[in-house]
Structure formats: structure tokens, C-alpha cells
């Protein structure tokens, strides 16, 4: 029994430490820290699926967070830090892709879809306007319809 209890006590001591954001790597200045987090949210953790380095617990994400802070310490602006990291790790690291020739379509997508949609709506109205309104029903037809709708008592 005592062994079991001890095994438990020890295993709790040895839960592997994850590399979540911890105080050691943080700036004391809250403004600087807020900037670091904003930058962190725009950079991708390379080994995770779609997680930013700010959110990730992976070791590599921690390394990148530390790198961001080092660059900021060295006096880089936000853009310079992001550019520095993108140069080293490629565009893959940017959660918000840069506007380049190969992302024109991506960034243009909302405008393209909205414009196409608006055109389609107007085209629809244009075309429908040309269709003549259906001729009014003859009295005989109306009577038959009434009979169908109200059963035998129409």
C-alpha cells in the first residue's frame, strides 16, 4: 500500500514540464509584453497544427518566443521582428500571409466574391425583368383551382 501511495506521490512530482509561456521569459514592462504577445499571435508554431507560438506549449514555440523577445530587446520594431523570423523560417511561419504575387487571390477573395455576388444579383434581376409577367388566369381556370383547393364545396 505504501509503495502505491509513494508511486503516486512521485509520479506527480515528475509530470514532464510543458513549455507553456512562463514568467521567466516574460518582460517586466507590461507594454513591451503586450507587444510581444501580439507578435506571438501572428507567428505559427512550426511543429503544431495551426497554433500560434503564443498559444503553444511545444519546445520549439518557446524557442521562437524567446527569439522574439531577444529581437525586441535589441530594439527591433514589430515589423522588423516578424521580418527577421520570416527570413529565417520562411513564410510558412506567418499566420497572416504577406501580400505578394502569390497571395493576391487570397487577399482579394472577399472583394472578388462580394463583387461577383452583387453582379450576379443584378444580372438575375435584369434577366427576370425581361420575362413577361404570366397572363392572368381565366375564370374557368380559377374556378377549377378553387374547387381543387376547397374540395367539393367551392
Amino acid at each position: 500500500m505504501i509503495r502505491l501511495a509513494l508511486a503516486l506521490a512521485f509520479s506527480l512530482l515528475v509530470i514532464p514540464a510543458a513549455h507553456a509561456l512562463d514568467a521567466a521569459e516574460m518582460f517586466d514592462d507590461p507594454q513591451l509584453e503586450a507587444r510581444a504577445r501580439d507578435i506571438g499571435r501572428e507567428l505559427r508554431c512550426l511543429v503544431c497544427q495551426n497554433e500560434s507560438i503564443f498559444d503553444s506549449n511545444a519546445g520549439l514555440a518557446r524557442d521562437l518566443r524567446v527569439l522574439v523577445r531577444e529581437r525586441m530587446q535589441a530594439g527591433d520594431s514589430d515589423e522588423e521582428v516578424v521580418a527577421f523570423i520570416a527570413d529565417r523560417y520562411g513564410d510558412f511561419v506567418l499566420l497572416k500571409p504577406r501580400v505578394t504575387a502569390q497571395t493576391y487571390v487570397l487577399w482579394g477573395a472577399p472583394a472578388i466574391f462580394l463583387v461577383l455576388g452583387t453582379l450576379a444579383v443584378f444580372a438575375y434581376h435584369q434577366r427576370r425583368r425581361k420575362t413577361a409577367a404570366a397572363a392572368p388566369l381565366s375564370d374557368e381556370d380559377r374556378r377549377e383551382a378553387q374547387r381543387l383547393l376547397h374540395g367539393g364545396d367551392a
Binding site: P136, L137, D141, E144, A145, L148
Partner: peptide, 12 residues
């Protein structure tokens, strides 16, 4: 109502 009647005839 006329539209509905038209549909009814078409269906029937």
C-alpha cells in the same frame, strides 16, 4: 392567391 391557384392547377 392567384399565384397559389396557378401552382395548384400546375400541380393537378
Amino acid at each position: 392567391a392567384q399565384e397559389i391557384e396557378r401552382r395548384t392547377l400546375a400541380a393537378a
